[in-house]
């Protein structure tokens, strides 16, 4: 079973992503902010894909993505941004940080699952 790691500060969003991905057959772990996520990544088996929110308290998803890209062990994990930042500019900048895809909230469930399927390693 493939593992997906979701970093999202919104409780509802977290629940929804987890439910959708669980239902699609993925094992899902979640963290509510970047520091918690970084700790989790240090201590657990590395996931097959990471879904990141951008605006979070503390470090942003962009910073976390850069940290992941700079880590020798984690840099090959595909990252998907899932954010309410809908402007083209935000998409451009998020993808420049090394992410594979950018999904705008609110998203259609199928879009999320298709994107995860398309990029999971």
């Amino acid at each position: 079973m493939k593992n997906v790691f979701v970093v999202e500060d919104g409780q509802t969003e977290q629940t929804m992503i987890k439910a959708l991905l669980n239902h699609a057959g993925f094992k899902v772990d979640v963290a509510s902010d970047a520091d918690e996520a970084w700790d989790w990544l240090q201590k657990n088996t590395l996931p097959d894909l990471i879904v990141l929110d951008i605006v979070m308290p503390g470090k942003s998803g962009l910073e976390l993505c850069r940290m992941i890209q700079e880590d020798e062990k984690m840099k090959d994990i595909p990252v998907i941004f899932c954010s309410s930042k809908s402007e083209e500019f935000d998409r451009f900048w998020a993808l420049r940080q090394g992410a594979k895809a950018y999904i705008v909230k609110p998203y259609a469930p199928k879009e999320l699952i298709d994107t995860v399927y398309a990029h999971i390693r």
Binding site: I54, S60, E63, S84, K85, E87, D90, F92, W93
Partner: peptide
């Protein structure tokens, strides 16, 4: 602080 929009992206780049 990270915010949405162009300024947010520029701020993020500035932070980095």
């Amino acid at each position: 602080p990270t915010v949405e929009g162009e300024i947010g992206a520029i701020a993020d780049a500035f932070n980095a």
